[in-house]
Design a protein around this nucleic acid. Structure first.
Lengths: 137, 137
DNA sequence: TATTGTTATACTCTATAACTATA
DNA sequence: TATAGTTATAGAGTATAACAATA
């Protein structure tokens, strides 16, 4: 065992996989969800910004955005300052979708949290900022 | 904010995404990796068992396994007790691939760990079993 | 000329339906 | 008949290359 964090890393990967599998029938895929969450949290984005954020090529992101526009969750609007750029924003339906999805996932996660002891829950709350730091590093 | 664990859940998802993106050029995909790791950790598996473990349909898993057999990482062998079943196992190359990949990922993770304080590292080590419990719940 | 976005095209991974061999 | 695996086929999602519009 060359590294004491192997177990931690594996547990993280596994838990995250379980979370990702928590999606409703007929739901949007992982890439689409990421875009909707991003626009919800960071406001209107250009295509390039979204592609970079998800580390995906612009044509790929363009297709993803196209699907979400067709579904009525996003709007594409040409920028007034720079006509090359587009501004991608949420519709009301998109905003509602994000809220609903977040609610459902939080509920799933909270149910699992409920099986822990008070001490374990306390530990989780304290480790949250550390995980955030790791993710952003 | 209806749930105090939203932040934790998001950090987990984000960190895991970063980890998954850590793959070398010409590397195998996520689904293929999951299969190799599974067989490495749990020993020879039937196709159905692998499909169920990854929550994927048998035809889909069959294709994934087929690619890995062609790549020389897995072998398919008919069971002697029940001729309908196949036993899927790692080749030496497959075993080596798993070890190498795990080593690389651990290194990536360890590098990020290095930016933490001793106290934060201690917290992480203690939370590992809790995360495992959550993932397995 | 460089940048932003898009279209054309192909490849991978997934799924459902239908088939084969075995129990 | 039921089960384990496979084959046939199609639908998402991704990529690279080439193009269009604008700066």
């Amino acid at each position: 065992m060359p590294n004491p964090y192997t177990d931690l890393r594996l547990s993280l990967a596994r838990l995250s996989r379980r979370m990702r599998q928590q999606r409703a029938e007929g739901d949007v895929g992982e890439g689409q969800r990421s875009v909707l969450f991003r626009v919800h949290d960071a406001g209107p984005q250009t295509l390039g910004a979204l592609a970079e954020h998800d580390r995906v090529t612009p044509p790929s992101m363009n297709r993803t955005v196209g699907v979400l526009v067709e579904r009525g969750y996003l709007t594409r609007e040409q920028s007034t300052e720079d006509a090359r750029r587009v501004s991608i924003d949420l519709t009301d339906a998109g905003r509602q979708w994000v809220r609903e999805t977040r609610r459902r996932r939080d509920a799933w996660f909270a149910a699992r949290i409920g099986s822990l002891t008070a001490e374990e829950r306390d530990l989780l709350e304290r480790v949250a900022p550390v995980l955030r730091k790791l993710a952003d590093a």
